[in-house]
Design a protein around this nucleic acid. Structure first.
Length: 102
DNA sequence: GTGTTGACAATCA
DNA sequence: CTGATTGCCAACA
């Protein structure tokens, strides 16, 4: 456990249900490292926080955990965007992003 | 110390 | 929107 790790986990835990933050946002939130480091921390300690509330900047879900995350989003009421293709939904970064009201 | 990889992001076509 | 490229920082061999 490092100070940086605690900061990231704290930031992720700070995300309210129904909203999300991109890796870059979390990195900017803690003021250290970058989106890659945030992802790395979540990969190691993400098991103790709402990792599903951290998504890509374009709204795409976590690789390998899309199904798990989706279950959370539907349960928390996170604004999703269903593609007419029937593929996996993505986050509506215009409303779900915890940054500006858009 | 160098080269490659990775739960990424922003830009250009 | 999609595909390719460049930038970023840290860990690993």
């Amino acid at each position: 456990m490092d100070d940086y790790t605690a900061k990231v986990l704290e930031a992720v835990d700070s995300i309210p249900a129904g909203q999300v933050m991109s890796y870059g946002d979390v990195a900017e939130f803690v003021g250290q490292g970058g989106p890659r480091q945030v992802g790395r921390v979540l990969a190691l300690w993400g098991g103790g926080v709402a990792w599903w509330r951290v998504v890509h900047a374009d709204g795409s879900l976590l690789a390998g955990h899309e199904r798990k995350a989706l279950a959370r989003y539907e349960a928390e009421g996170t604004p999703l965007r269903r593609p007419a293709d029937g593929g996996l939904p993505r986050i509506d970064m215009r409303r779900a992003r915890r940054r500006g009201d858009g």
